[in-house]
């Protein structure tokens, strides 16, 4: 999987992208988020408030129950503030 982070999620984690193999016990976005949260303090603060996290898989918005696969590009970011 290719993981992408934007805005404060990127700043908290400390990088804008990373490659990761999909762990066997993880099937959807929400589970991936819990898995990432356990990786350290930065990840923990990035995903602290789930209401403030939006996710796009292969550049399409999805919900946390969206099923993911090894080939996916998964982006995590806060609610958008453009315009």
């Amino acid at each position: 999987m290719n993981l992408l982070y934007f805005a404060h999620v990127r700043e908290n984690i400390g990088c804008s992208s990373e490659q990761m193999s999909l762990p066997d016990n993880i099937s959807n976005v929400g589970e991936l988020m819990s898995h990432l949260r356990a990786k350290g303090k930065g990840y923990q603060s990035a995903f602290e408030n789930e209401d403030n996290i939006r996710v796009a898989v292969n550049q399409l918005y999805v919900n946390f129950d969206h099923v993911i696969s090894e080939q996916d590009e998964i982006a995590f970011f806060p609610p958008m503030t453009g315009g």
Binding site: F6, A56, A75, P78, M80, T81, G82, G83
Partner: peptide, 14 residues
């Protein structure tokens, strides 16, 4: 277009 852009287009302001 403006209303939708503000909530649906992936841009973030710092």
């Amino acid at each position: 277009i403006m209303d939708w852009l503000k909530t649906d287009a992936p841009f973030w302001k710092k």
